[in-house]
Design a protein around this nucleic acid. Structure first.
Lengths: 122, 122
DNA sequence: CTTACATATCAGCATCAGCTGATATCAGAA
DNA sequence: TTCTGATATCAGCTGATGCTGATATGTAAG
């Protein structure tokens, strides 16, 4: 966001914090449960209880993931009496997930097998 | 991987392992250094030494991330004498990253601030 | 008020994924 | 072969991130 007053040679790509945030963004998508939630709310609006039942996961777990998705703008909520309904907040979320899925299918075997003794667990 | 002999009602969305792999896929994108590498090799082919210099990160670190990206099909390599050149393996990788970036900008503040005491660190 | 239901939050624990520094491999030059 | 340069791999450590079970909040009905 800063002006370009750089004259010294060999400057870094001038994208300091951007990459950090973007990484954080993709990490939200890097969880099985959160992906399944996104899939479900993409179909139609869902209450927390509904998600808990369908996913078969403990309520606190689902709720925590929902809080994450909500805070980061992936889903939005609507209250009706005592229940809270979650829906997709942005259609582009579906697009990212779909694109990821497409790319995955060309490398599924590798990504599955990726469990290097060392380094990134991929 | 098992056959589908399920008849009981209220079955799970029948996407058991898919979500796991997809999550793993997005986790590859969930690292600052890997994203910066992808950005650099998207511009043009880069050798390991070049990446190490530009990124200003230790060689073992860069190399580990490169191994991850290569194994998972994000980048491809070409050998020339003693140096190895990395390039983007699939143009769609750029598309996913760009889409993520676009979505990020509408929620950057939140995602940045996301450091819940509990639950997902988002 | 009290009770019941729906959801959210928290602390403690366990595990995973990235970092570091040393070492290994591998290709080419002498 | 021996030496040097370029990259890859490894073990050990550490911090981040997800899970669990209990508790808190909040809303509506009696």
């Amino acid at each position: 966001m800063e002006a370009a007053t750089l004259t010294a040679p060999f400057r870094l790509p001038a994208a300091p914090a951007e990459a950090d945030l973007l990484a954080k963004y993709f990490r939200v998508l890097g969880d099985r449960t959160r992906l399944r939630v996104l899939e479900l709310v993409a179909e139609r609006e869902r209450s927390v209880g509904e998600l808990v039942t369908v996913l078969g996961e403990p309520q606190s777990k689902v709720s925590n993931h929902l809080a994450c998705l909500r805070w980061c703008g992936f889903v939005a909520t609507r209250r009706e009496h005592r229940t809270i309904h979650y829906r997709l907040a942005d259609e582009r979320v579906t697009a990212v997930v779909e694109l990821g899925r497409a790319l995955l299918h060309d490398n599924a075997e590798h990504i599955d097998a990726c469990a290097r003794v060392d380094g990134p667990g991929c």
